[in-house]
Computed example of a mutant assay.
Amino acid sequence: MEKEELLKIRRDLHQIPELGFQEYKTQQYLLNIIKQFKSEHLKIETWRTGIFVLLEGTNPKKTIGYRADIDGLPIQEETTYPFQSKHSGYMHACGHDFHMSIALGILSHFIDNRIEDNLLFLFQPAEEGPGGAEPMLNSEIAGKWRPDLIFALHIAPELPVGTIATKPGLLFANTSELFIDLKGKGGHAAYPHTTNDMVVAAANLVTQMQSIVSRNVDPLDSAVVTIGKITGGTVQNIIAENARLEGTIRTLSVESMDKVKERIEAIVRGLEIGYNCQAAIDYGAMYHQVYNDEALSEEFMSYISEHTDYDVKLSTEAMTGEDFGYMVSKIPGFMFWLGVDSPFGLHHAKLTPNEDAIQVAVDVMSKYIEFKSKSK
């Protein structure tokens, strides 16, 4: 594919962001492009709103997987693009339009330059939630075409174009959503003694949870407990009968995630007694840490440094979460950051990644996959 074709694809996809497991237009657009690749060695299977694409090798010894996520975010776009989102309130604010375009560019390269090994492209829905990696990898199709290795990338707004960054081992954190519902007894604001106020209970709960990281997590480990939203009550002169807290937990180890949840549950049990209320906890979507295969990621970094003109950097682990973590927990592989030089970061309404990075990624992964197919 020429650069102009990839840019058109990216801009078309940018205009139709859809939420997890609702990517119907996106799936159809991708299928229309993929079906234009005329090859008797290409096999296509749909799974919910995702797609598996298998390109058979000339003499396969293994199957190399490449994953691209396809969903958007519930964000109202504020860029000055002439190709802004046509879906009001939704935006590709995490670069998944880039990820899909890059995957199509890599696929196009190998349609014309078949290698010995099979290539499996996974266009995965619901990365932003509720989580598409686990069910997609556990599907019957993935069982039939299960890859032996798997790779993925994520755009990095803070890095310049031409920069590749990754690290062996832990790259992205364990993450979990957190929802806590409180139910007490409402009543007139003038008679607080006859009620159980859930606004006060919610405020106390937030304060108590701030001690979890500082007093229950190993100081040499890292964890975050953030409550980003609180709702409760109806009007100013009625004591709230219900309250809801919504937040996130992020840790750099599975052990710390278990410890944080254990402490949240203990604190909530105490709150039920102390405020004479009922509470329910829901952890929502939980993402496994992205733990890069150490040998593969070291080999990848060495290959980029020795065989390309791109700049490779050793990154640090991040508290961001990524659904790809489930895939690399089951299959050897790695994820890397792709520099896109945007003044605004991920999940920002003004994210404007530099489109020159698309060709960088296609070039890098095409060369590395060819190298991996030749190596034993």
Rank of each mutant, 00 (worst) to 15 (best):
E23I: 00
T248S: 15
G232C: 02
E294S: 07
M301Q: 11
A189E: 05
T248P: 09
N174G: 12
M301W: 03
L42K: 11
A223L: 08
Y275E: 04
S373I: 10
L153W: 08
F52D: 13
N138K: 15
I331T: 13
I155K: 10
E116W: 08
T226H: 10
L6W: 13
I64Q: 05
L178A: 06
L159R: 13
T79S: 10
G169Y: 10
N354E: 07
I369H: 02
R48F: 14
L178H: 06
D218K: 08
G95D: 09
R48P: 00
V268H: 03
N59E: 12
G162L: 05
K229I: 00
S305K: 14
R250D: 03
I75H: 08
I70D: 11
A152D: 05
T175Q: 11
I141V: 14
L338H: 03
V290P: 03
E306A: 15
H307M: 06
A152C: 09
D356V: 00
Y283P: 01
Q84H: 14
A142Y: 10
Q359H: 00
F300D: 09
F300R: 04
A93Q: 08
K183T: 14
I230V: 14
N138F: 00
V235N: 13
Y310I: 13
L351G: 01
N113T: 09
S108Q: 12
L30D: 10
L137E: 08
D218H: 03
N138Q: 13
E177F: 01
I155D: 09
L13W: 05
V268C: 06
Q76N: 08
K372G: 04
L73R: 12
E158N: 12
Q210N: 08
I70L: 00
V217D: 09
P219Y: 08
A223I: 11
R11Q: 15
A173N: 09
L178D: 09
G65Q: 08
K62L: 02
D293W: 10
G325P: 06
H193K: 00
Y291K: 12
N32A: 12
K3Y: 10
F110C: 03
H92L: 07
L13A: 10
L42Q: 12
V364L: 02
D309Q: 15
M327I: 13
H99R: 02
W145N: 00
A223R: 07
Q210D: 01
E306P: 00
F110K: 01
T248E: 13
K38N: 15
D282H: 12
A103F: 11
V312R: 04
Y368K: 02
S139C: 11
F371D: 07
T58K: 09
C94T: 06
P135T: 05
I33Y: 14
D221F: 04
I230K: 05
S139E: 14
L153F: 15
A318S: 10
I102W: 08
D71E: 07
D12E: 15
L159N: 14
N59S: 14
R263Y: 07
F37H: 09
G247W: 04
S101D: 10
D293R: 03
T63D: 09
I180L: 12
D356P: 00
L6Y: 12
M198V: 06
D112T: 15
Y90S: 07
M257I: 03
I115F: 11
Y81K: 02
E77T: 05
M198N: 05
I369E: 07
T175C: 11
I227P: 04
W47F: 15
V161M: 05
I238Y: 08
N32H: 11
E5L: 06
L137P: 01
V217T: 07
L30T: 09
F172P: 06
G339K: 02
